[in-house]
Amino acid sequence: MTESQGKEIVEADAALGGEQIGQRTGMFGSNGSGDTSGYGGLVAPKVFPGAATRPYGGWFDTVADALGDLVERVVIHRGEVTFHVPRGSLYAAMEKLRNDPALRFEFSAGVSGVHYPDDAGRELHAVYSLLSMSYNRRIRVETTCPDGDPHLPSTVALYPTHDWHEREAWDFFGLIFDGHPALARIQMPDDWPGHPQRKDYPLGGIPVEYKGGTVPPPDQRRSYN
């Protein structure tokens, strides 16, 4: 994607109420270690879809009405709905979604961490994918917190499988889930420094030996920039 094509995308999304929070270069947007993918010339805008306006359509309005003031904004993108809630309202919103007889989002597919270094004041996002098996409906719930205060309420009491999902989000992104029964690393060693799926994490590594050959860490490989 060229810079002019990226500008066209930004202008088109802005016309739809989108919000640009920065620009990604290369395949993965990593910094400080050289691009080894061969796609170092790619330039793409980081654009959030804009908020939807009522009526949202069908059962989307039913869920929005039930959540009421717990929701900051509703985003509908590519036929999928995301309810953005402030972190202070996260637990109440998730409890409502699970327990309300008209909603019954009984199943959570997990907690996904996302890091947007350019999204000032809300650099860390947590995304919850919920399914109502009773009504065959799928939604996302998204909340944010700043790098300097990465605390969110734990929802393990509502969805017990979040015990593992919150530990993984802490391990890879540094999100701290207050009230978690045993927040600890789940993939990386206990003494591992930092959180390796953050965008500002150095793209380093350890040598890998395979059938007598050695693959160096990414930061020691040839750069294609």
Score class of each variant (00 low, 15 high):
Pro45Lys: 02
Pro217Ser: 07
Leu152Cys: 04
Ser33Met: 09
Gln220Arg: 12
Cys145Met: 12
Gln220Tyr: 03
Arg185Val: 00
Ile9Pro: 05
Gln197Thr: 08
Ser132Lys: 05
Trp59Val: 12
Tyr91Ser: 14
Leu97Trp: 06
Asp200Ser: 13
Asp163Ile: 15
Pro49Trp: 08
Glu168Lys: 03
Leu70Asn: 03
Met133Trp: 11
Pro218Tyr: 08
Pro217Glu: 06
Leu103Thr: 06
Asp163His: 15
Cys145Ile: 09
Ala184Val: 13
Glu168Phe: 00
Ser108Gly: 11
Arg78Ser: 14
Gly58Met: 12
Arg73Ala: 15
Thr2Asp: 03
Gly204Lys: 01
Ala126Glu: 05
Phe48Met: 14
His115Met: 02
Glu72Pro: 01
Trp192Asn: 00
Leu42Asn: 02
Asn136Pro: 01
Gly29Val: 12
Pro160His: 10
Thr82Tyr: 07
Ala182Thr: 07
His162Pro: 06
Pro55Phe: 10
Arg104Ala: 15
Gly148Glu: 11
Ser134Asn: 13
Phe177Trp: 10
Ala44Met: 14
Asp149Lys: 07
Pro146Thr: 05
Ala12Phe: 04
Pro160Thr: 13
Pro45Ser: 01
Leu183Met: 04
Glu106Phe: 07
Asp119Gly: 08
Pro49Met: 05
Arg137Tyr: 12
Leu16Pro: 00
Asp200Gln: 13
Pro160Cys: 11
Gly22Phe: 04
Gly41Phe: 11
Ala169Val: 01
Ser134Lys: 15
Ala64Arg: 05
Asp118Leu: 08
Lys211Arg: 15
Glu19Ile: 11
Met27Arg: 14
Gly57Arg: 05
Ala169Glu: 04
Leu152Tyr: 02
Val75Ile: 13
Thr62Arg: 04
Tyr91Pro: 07
Gly26Arg: 11
Leu183Trp: 06
Ala92Thr: 14
Thr155Met: 11
Leu130Trp: 02
Pro150Asp: 06
Asp65Thr: 10
Asp13Ala: 15
Arg167Tyr: 00
Pro86Cys: 00
Ser223Lys: 15
Pro150Arg: 06
Tyr91Ala: 15
Asp100Thr: 01
Phe173Ser: 08
Leu70Ala: 02
Lys7Asp: 13
Arg167Ser: 01
Ala157Asp: 10
Arg198Ser: 04
Ser112Gly: 12
Leu175Arg: 00
Ala15Ile: 00
Pro49Glu: 06
Val114Arg: 15
Val47Glu: 10
Gly212Arg: 03
His180Cys: 02
Ile21Val: 09
Arg221Gly: 15
Tyr91Ile: 10
Thr2Arg: 03
Asn225Gly: 14
Tyr135Val: 00
